[in-house]
Nucleic acid binder design. Structure first.
Lengths: 221, 221, 221, 221
DNA sequence: GATGAATGAGTGTTCATTCAT
DNA sequence: AATGAATGAACACTCATTCAT
């Protein structure tokens, strides 16, 4: 309608929008799936939040299910590599590293919108086994591998006892999972006096776990 | 499978079925709710699995939500009152009681279909506030009250230290929640070597927690 | 179950109830149909109010429609014969008779539950043409005949002018119909200041009509 | 029936239909509501009569009740504002205005399908309080306000006596209500000789009312 | 005769999906 | 590529009617 071609803006509107579309749709879908779950999210609402029509959504994603799967895939990759580097570079005792990582997890994932992805995946995994497999492979297993690496190093240096590594790993995951689910479900309607201070909770759980990991104090007979 | 085919059909058609109906419907509802979640389960499917028509279901349960609540009462709330009695009657130190209760929980809820209900509630609480409040009121709060009672008794007798009761309660719940979510979502597709022995996991978590709860033993040099 | 046979009550319970059943059902149906209309009345509610089971109702009335028709028929007959006698016996001017009859109508029909029948018939007539015909034949036409008789007598004696009798008859019915419909529908939610004093309204309408019926005053040129 | 069969099908399939849809749906809804009443009319039947699917109806009207309200606005409320203008602009005596308006009412509402709406509301107001309140607010009260305005002006100019305005207003409505109920219920099966000429009936009722409203003429001996 | 458990065809309403434009 | 009008298969829930007991 206007003579926009004369303007210096050389990036053509159409094609830039075209490239951006899937991303805008995925972002809209992410926030709605997190907010309302899979069933209660309508494709119309996703399209509206992305500023396109319902038909356009189906141009990029052939069905609601495939949109959901694309959302999960899009938002899972590449979260762990940073921590992998931190761990690899770390020198000194492992306990402060564990403590640091768990608090970082809370700051960067647990307390942010990103924890909604975890909640989403856990909630809908039963209906979408391939999503569960995907998350298991791409997130859970690499995450557990990092933890096991720390534990192995601690055992090797004599800082930790040589306990069952599965139990310890899961024992470290359990409070994080608990916090995520609490935040996104029942915590929403828990009475005020049951409210939870997540950082303090992490601290207390870590203290228990680290104490359990420590070797029997040397001056015990 | 049995030789029953030769026997005349002795199942009474109407009057005697009436007593059995609610149970059949509750069983069908439990398995479908666990399998598909609340929103994705249709009352028609429940009725069909119970071998009756849709209308018949509404003869016994006035709505889908109340059917669900009946399922929860049947499978979970009932157990809580049993445990309340066990706790009330208990004499002696609290640590073995906690251990016993957590293993009973695993045997009677955690490892059964009923644990799917907890997963369902955590997953869909956001969309069905009625259900979330119901579960919070009828299950979570009474359950936490039982735990707090044990903790208080332990503190009173000097068996436990006087730690933050919220953290301890949540710390006891976290592994159970972890097991439930694990079993019903990601665990479904975890590789064999990551499989978890739930009883042993409960044991190890309890050991950590109980150790953390014990007062500094006076006779340690 | 009891030895009631020994008691002196010789009227057998069974048969007496049996004879009373249809009447109890009709009474229950009448009040519910008046209260809620045809569609919104359930046969279950009728049976419950009559103190019998749903199945029993269908023993006496083969369908909801036929129950409805029986209710209307049962409650229409024999209301007018009294007034017919009053009119026949009346001597003297007709105007006070009309006035007396309309106020009696309000006292005996309009303000009582009976006006619900009229409302019911008018409301459902479109769906039940034979009920409409029945009411027309059994109530409306005899009623109009009575009015026409009065008018004819008034004209014969010179008390009334010789106006179109259809218009006058309908003009006398219109305020009664208006009161009935007002009472049973919109009047229910009219604001307080629009409330209507039925007796005063009848008076004012009668005054207009009677004035219109009077012959031109003799001393007018 | 027409020669159109030879012409190519020029009815545009989608985009141009959109403008016509609401009107087609409203027309279908009007005739079905009048024919069967509110409760007995199904949205599916309305859609079918308009030649669209059930879902399409909900594209234009968010609920059955709002469809009904749109029908009322289209067919009745619109007329009221026309009359409001007529009344406002009117100069000279009020009596001919009243006469003109009542005849217009008969031509535009009373004798058309639209009068069935009034009958419907009176019949089903008890079961659908939303509809009753809506009609009361949007039709009855504005209509009465118009009548009261005319009466007030007539009293102010000395054309009318200062009678009870409620009774006079209701007295003017009563014959219209009578005609509507007559047309849509019992009149459907009244014998031929009882048939009513509505225009003449309106005339005669108006004459009575206007005569009653006139002040005692000062120059009568 | 009387019961009440059981049915199944409908209700209004929603929403993923299609397709002519 | 993008639209948005149109669809129709669900869904939870109701209720007149049936029929074995």
């Amino acid at each position: 309608m206007s003579h926009a071609a004369l303007a210096p803006d050389t990036t053509p509107r159409r094609s830039r929008r075209k490239d951006a579309r899937p991303g805008e749709l995925l972002a809209a879908a992410l926030s709605l799936f997190v907010e309302k779950g899979f069933a209660a999210t309508t494709v119309e609402a996703v399209a509206a939040r992305a500023g396109v029509s319902k038909g356009t959504l189906f141009l990029y994603f052939p069905s609601k299910v495939e949109l959901f799967q694309a959302v999960v895939r899009e938002n899972i990759v590449g979260r762990l590599s940073e921590w992998a580097q931190t761990i690899e570079r770390h020198e000194g005792p492992q306990a402060p590293l564990l403590r640091e990582l768990m608090h970082q997890w809370w700051q960067r994932i647990g307390m942010t919108e990103a924890s909604g992805i975890t909640k989403l995946v856990m909630s809908e995994a039963g209906q979408f086994p391939d999503i569960a497999r995907f998350y298991q492979t791409e997130v859970i297993e690499p995450g557990q591998a990092l933890i096991r690496l720390i534990l192995r190093r601690g055992v090797a240096s004599g800082e930790f006892r040589d306990l069952n590594p599965e139990h310890t790993t899961h024992g470290l995951f359990a409070p994080m999972l608990f916090l995520v689910m609490w935040k996104h479900s029942l915590g929403l309607c828990a009475p005020a006096q049951t409210q939870l201070d997540p950082s303090a909770f992490i601290d207390s759980q870590l203290q228990l776990l680290l104490h359990g990991l420590m070797p029997p104090s040397p001056h015990t007979p």
